[in-house]
């Protein structure tokens, strides 16, 4: 049957998912072994494996090695992976829903909205007390949702969302939000240093307690988006055709925008603003494996996680012992890619 011949790509993409999952584990283990204290990769692996259930390995390593790997580096590596996956999937979802290749949490103001919400959360007296993370992620979520709503409605021309108006509205709103953030920082007093450090994006303060909050939220949001993978393909046809093929587009838009914004807010709450992951990863995946969201989403999760773990390794080794903000690394790789896409896009439009 000739039709079966047309689907070799599907099998290739299934293999790609399996291979990338292996690469992710390898990169994660590597990331746990490098840093200011060099721990041999073999020892790192042994420490990690010994932590798996039902496995007993006689420790041949010092206790300080174990603390470094398990309590300091591992949560950092996992959080980097979770945030990379979250930003990549959020980018893919925004791009699909807005049918706009440049939609991305950072460029459309969602990350900045989350940042403003989070800063307000940090400054509120309740945030500092026992509640811990409670109020910061919630305000970040509200902030991100409000910015998406504003940008979408400003940028919309009828039923279309042109590239130019979306980017302009996103940039303008981001500027406003960051101005408010700057103002809040000037009146913040003592806590300002910590907030600035968080704001520019870093994994250096990552703890297991953060992983414990971020991971379930991101898993939930990504799961919701994955349910709609096939519908995201159909909505590329435009809302009318998607409706005629059985999609309740209004409900889908609300659920998916909420889910994508939720995982953006979770990422921003814990590591600050990291730009361009949501644009580099889905586009690279699309270029290699095609536009089908049933593969685009899982592949973006894996590539996004790998990318941000690698970026974080760079961030803490390039200038060691000083850390480079991870947003600097992602911007350095992301901006040229973004400009390339913008250039190609405008050429197509003309």
């Amino acid at each position: 049957m000739a039709s079966a011949m047309l689907f070799p790509r599907r099998r290739g993409r299934v293999y790609a998912i399996a291979i990338l999952a292996g690469v992710l584990l390898a990169v994660g283990a590597f990331a746990a072994s490098v840093g200011s204290v060099d721990i041999p990769l073999g020892t790192t692996l042994a420490i990690l494996i010994s932590k798996l259930p039902f496995i007993n390995i006689e420790p041949t390593w010092t206790e300080s090695f174990e603390i470094i790997v398990v309590d300091i580096r591992l949560p950092r590596v996992i959080l980097a992976g979770v945030v990379g996956a979250a930003l990549a999937v959020a980018g893919a979802a925004y791009q699909a829903l807005f049918r706009n290749p440049l939609a991305e949490p950072y460029l459309i103001g969602a990350a900045q909205g989350a940042a403003l919400g989070a800063v307000i959360g940090f400054l509120l007296p309740i945030g500092v007390t026992g509640l811990g993370y409670g109020v910061v992620p919630i305000l970040a979520f509200i902030g991100a949702l409000l910015s998406i709503f504003i940008v979408y409605n400003i940028a919309r021309v009828g039923r279309l969302l042109p590239v130019t108006t979306l980017i302009l509205a996103g940039v303008a709103l981001s500027a406003l939000l960051m101005a408010i953030v700057s103002y809040l920082l000037t009146i913040a007093g003592d806590s300002v240093h910590g907030i600035i450090f968080w704001l520019i994006g870093s994994f250096s303060l990552s703890k297991w307690s953060e992983v414990a909050v971020a991971l379930p939220v991101v898993l939930f949001g990504v799961g919701v988006i994955m349910i709609y993978a096939r519908s995201l393909n159909l909505i590329q046809l435009g809302e009318e055709q998607a409706q005629q093929l059985g999609i309740n587009t209004e409900r889908m838009k609300i659920i998916l925008l909420t889910a994508a914004t939720l995982i953006t807010a979770a990422a921003v709450s814990f590591v600050g603003i990291i730009g361009f992951v949501g644009i580099i990863i889905p586009h690279a995946v699309r270029l290699i494996w095609g536009p089908d969201h049933r593969f685009l989403l899982p592949l973006s999760i894996l590539v996004g996680a790998i990318f941000l773990i690698l970026a974080d390794i760079l961030a803490r080794t390039v200038n060691a012992p000083t850390e480079v903000p991870i947003g600097v690394i992602t911007a350095l790789t992301g901006v040229p890619f973004f400009l390339y896409l913008l250039r190609r896009r405008t050429r197509i439009l003309n």
């Binding site: 047309l6 393909n233 159909l234 590329q236 046809l237 435009g238 095609g290 089908d292």
Partner: peptide, 16 residues
């Protein structure tokens, strides 16, 4: 109809 340019014709028909 406007179609998303990156999909193949087969993928578009398959959407049916």
């Amino acid at each position: 109809p406007l179609l998303p340019s990156a999909y193949t014709a087969f993928e578009i028909v398959l959407m049916g």
